[in-house]
Amino acid sequence: MSTKHKIDLYALTWRLPIILWQLIFFVGPVVFMIAISFFVVKNYRMTEAFEFVNWQRMLTRGYFWDSYWYTLFIASLSAAIAMMLAFPAAWALAFRASENLRRGAVFLLIIPFFTSYLVRTFSWYVILAESGVLNAMLGYVGLGPFKMLNTHFGTVVGYLTLTLPLAVILQTVTMANIDKTLVEAARNLGCKPLATIWRVVLPLSKTGFVVTALFCFILAFGDFVAPFYLGGSQEPTLPILILDTTKSGQQWPRAAVVAIMMMLTLFAVAFTAIMLAYRKPKVAR
């Protein structure tokens, strides 16, 4: 019997736009970026070439690796903080709130995305400055002033501005889909509240939680605004290094090297996370 695969034209027609979109706006630019990483700059003009000089130069510079590890660390830290801060709110919305309240809360969480991220970031100046609102409040109880702008703390606050609402929404949606009878069964069988979360809720939410953490990490890892405006560019993250590299001598090929390293890192992290998310639990024999 012939197993010849017939092309389903109908299905292909519907898939074609997204395939074309990905080819034109993702694969094409990535291929171009890889290509220009081998170009050279002469008299501020990129010249076609196939040389490894940009790779060699960037990967042997200490400051590149300092920025790399710092970016990896601060993005991971902010993703972890976002996940932890989001959990209580998401748990309450998923298990304690009424359907209407949950819908209203999710809507409110979407509202910050209506305004520009840059504007939201700049608004932190008023709150975090040494003469700002937060320090003024702390001053009333005899604390501070604390330096919060132009610090790692400022950077993380900026990242959370970007990721926390998203983390709450995704965690809420994940936990809202858990079969509540399983949670009730655990409680009826004598499982304490924290143990219920640890042994029932979290395992059932694993995939959604990993994907949420991955989103938070990706957004923070590639963000330029928070470390530049709230972190004072010290230490510079990889997106800042890309800007610095293009600013001086118009070294787009070297900036492409940094960008490719960022993409490779994101691929590795995303691949590991997805593997982790969909790994089947070991069944006890």
């Binding site: 510079r61 400051y63 300092d66 920025s67 010290q234 230490e235 510079p236 610095d244 001086s248 001598g249």
Partner: peptide, 10 residues
């Protein structure tokens, strides 16, 4: 000069 500046920032 730019390389040193990047080192300095880091």
């Amino acid at each position: 000069w730019n390389d040193f500046w990047s080192e300095y920032k880091n």
